[in-house]
């Protein structure tokens, strides 16, 4: 633990010397819950905050990976270095995953681009639990731009909005009509909309419906622009990059960025807090077994849960007094 771990000192030295393998191993530590990962993140904390985090989300097959490939090339051509975290789903049955984002990244891998595929590992919000830590590590490594690509999401998986500085929601005519865009959740999380596959039937109608829906929003907050792209042919990618940058300038100037990052830190505390409590109590402290027994005795699931929670709280109070 702590600085006493020789593996930590060795990894930090290689990381600070710009070793790509060290960054990769550090992300594995975050994913695997390595005992020294907290100390690693602590040591690098002062070096984070310089990379801009753009989240790319949307339903499966919308063209997220292809769009990311285009954005990556655009920024690399502009002389920036870039890290990409691409999350794909883990099987809830076997824990395995097929991570296929590199298949679409054929044009943008190479100098100045770091790509890491992550499995969601049971997390249901579109990212994995380790995504925040992995993004911090890439930030500290010194990338200018970070792209966080979620699993293909439906309507309510909005983890990315809490993890990113700017959230891009990618839709296609196959995503449904304007009523879908009025629903709560994902659509509210967007800072920018992309209607991809804009050369296909129904794309213009979808874009118009989106724009009309966005006009119904209360004034005050900036209205998300709707961009038309054909990611496969690189159409609209430069415009998307420009829109992300315009939004970034605006967020910096208005103080919105600071508020967002504060909210992001708080959300992460809550998440790691509840995850560590759950792991400790549910798996480690036998709550799971007690829940099984209660259910087998015919108790109702909700009341089992509330009773267990009340018992944990009571024990805490007893200990405190």
């Amino acid at each position: 633990m702590g600085p006493a771990d020789p593996a930590l000192a060795e990894l930090l030295a290689r990381f600070r010397a710009g070793g790509v393998g060290a960054l990769a191993r550090a992300i594995s530590w975050a994913e695997d819950g390595h005992p020294s990962v907290a100390a690693l993140l602590e040591a690098l904390h002062g070096e984070t905050g310089n990379a801009w985090r753009t989240g790319i989300t949307g339903p499966p097959g919308a063209g997220k990976s292809t769009l990311v490939d285009g954005l990556a090339r655009h920024w690399v051509a502009d002389g920036r270095c870039l890290g990409l975290l691409a999350v794909d789903p883990s099987s809830p049955f076997t824990g395995g995953a097929l991570l296929g984002d590199r298949v679409r990244m054929d044009r943008s891998t190479g100098e100045g681009v770091f790509v890491r595929s992550m499995a969601s590992r049971g997390s249901l919000g579109g990212l994995s639990l380790a995504t925040g830590a992995a993004a911090d590590l890439m930030d500290a490594f010194g990338f200018d731009e970070l792209l966080l690509e979620t699993v293909g999401v439906g309507q309510a998986e909005i983890d990315v909005a809490a993890a990113a500085d700017t959230t891009v929601v990618v839709l296609t005519p196959a995503s449904g009509d304007g009523i879908q865009a009025m629903k709560a959740g994902l659509m509210e999380a967007a800072d920018l909309f992309v209607v991809n596959k804009a050369d296909t039937a129904g794309a213009e109608r979808l874009a118009n419906e989106l724009e009309m829906t966005l006009e119904l929003r209360p004034s005050g907050a900036p209205r998300p622009p709707v961009l038309r792209c054909v990611a496969r042919d690189d159409q609209g990618v430069a415009e998307l990059a420009a829109a992300i940058e315009a939004r970034r300038e605006d967020d910096r100037a208005s103080g919105r960025l600071d508020r967002r990052r504060q909210a992001r830190d708080l959300a992460r505390v809550r998440r790691v807090f509840s995850e560590s409590l759950r792991a400790r109590l549910w798996d480690g402290d036998g709550l799971q077994d007690r829940a099984r027994e209660a259910l087998a005795a015919g108790e109702r699931p909700d009341s089992v849960a509330l009773k267990l929670a009340a018992r944990v709280l009571q024990r805490l109070q007893e200990r405190a007094s």
Binding site: T94, G95, G96, L98, G100, R102, V103, R104, S117
Partner: peptide
Amino acid sequence: AALRDRGMEVIYTG
């Protein structure tokens, strides 16, 4: 696909 079904995380390059 077979390795995925064994619980491994498989990155395919294309």
